[in-house]
């Protein structure tokens, strides 16, 4: 499955990196958040468990807030608010 980065509506974006392994999910997430404005929300979909720790630690460092975390049988859906 190829990477998808879409604008869902004003201020909300979706990054789908299912099928990708490290370091792709965290690098794509970083790049997407860098391009967004403060207050924008990124819906991140990934299925690489290792990336969850890295993305969470990255958000803690940058001040971005993970506002929702879901795990549906190995498919992670996180909503991250750009801080």
């Amino acid at each position: 499955m190829a990477m998808k980065f879409e604008k869902k509506e004003e201020g909300t974006f979706m990054l789908d990196v299912q099928g990708y392994v490290c370091p792709h999910p965290q690098i794509y997430t970083k790049k997407a958040l860098e391009k967004m404005k403060n207050g924008d929300v990124l819906e991140l979909i990934f299925d690489n468990p290792s990336s969850s720790e890295s993305v969470a630690a990255m958000c803690d460092t940058t001040g971005d807030e993970i506002i929702e975390k879901k795990n549906e049988s190995g498919k992670y859906i996180w909503r991250i608010k750009k801080g």
Partner: peptide, 22 residues
């Protein structure tokens, strides 16, 4: 390894790529 997502590759790679030292 699985519990800690313990991968030596991510040590310096995640530092250089996304600034994560864990």
């Amino acid at each position: 390894l699985q519990y800690g997502r313990f991968c030596f590759a991510s040590a310096f790679r995640d530092l250089f790529a996304v600034g994560v030292p864990r």
